[in-house]
Amino acid sequence: MSTMNIAKPKRRTVWDFIKQQPLGFIGLILILIMSIAAIFSPEVAPYHPEDVDFEASPALGGGQPSWDHLLGADAFGRDILSRLIYGARTALSIGFLSAFIGCTVGAIIGTTSAYFGGKIDLIIQRLIDLMLSFPIVVLAIVVIAVFPKTVVAGIDINVIIAIAIPFTPKVARVIRSQALTIVTLPYVDAAKSAGFSATRTIFRHILPNVTAPYLIMLTAFIGQAILLEASLSYLGLGVVEPTPSWGLMLSGVNSDYYRTAAWMIIYPGLAVSIAVFSFNLFGDSLRDWLDPKLKL
């Protein structure tokens, strides 16, 4: 399995990646563009996303895509392009943070489980099984229902936790199986018998060797998290007004404008699709490149 990577490390450069995985490279470029838009939203966006201008509302006869509003304006005359750009910030921050938390916690649980084995492993395994018996959306919605809404620095903590929790057991399971093969390697055994602490061994020796599957899952789950955030917001359970969110821009009432202002629902839908598409494309290629046999 992936121990192959450790046994005979290949020299890998970005150039190799571009050559071998052109689709993945396209994904990477798109991700970079989105990240720039997200980080520099205030500089890039022509308007503040919450600026209301009734004159530009399609309901008052305005809002067509024009030089003033490149992608048109929404019901409140808010600039769609600016909301998409700030929406990238919402999507990427929620996507990255939830995937990062989910994957990191999952990786720690997975390696711990593999390192200690025995009873601890068994208990953790059972807990993982338990959590895996819920569809992701169901688990996410339950978490949303349980926690009161908390918004810190414009980021909805509630949604992040709701998305991170269902990811954790999935990652833990994959990482555990990877870590199991490493735990039996002589140098880990040596570290163990040399009396190094568990924390040291796990962090120094096991975790670094599961970085490939970790990275692959991280990219894949960012895409999934963005999709999940959009779905939750569409249902009215995720990000709420006035925060710019792609899923929220697609919420039911906006489709009433489909004959008069189709841009209101076309562009946000495209934004979600392209974002998730890029992460999947990149994640897929990363897997093909790093560890083709990894099963998620």
């Binding site: 399609p58 309901a59 009432v253 009433d256 404008y257 004959r259 008069t260």
Partner: peptide
Amino acid sequence: APPERVLLKKE
């Protein structure tokens, strides 16, 4: 709501 009415009239 007003946008629904516009849509209904159109369709």
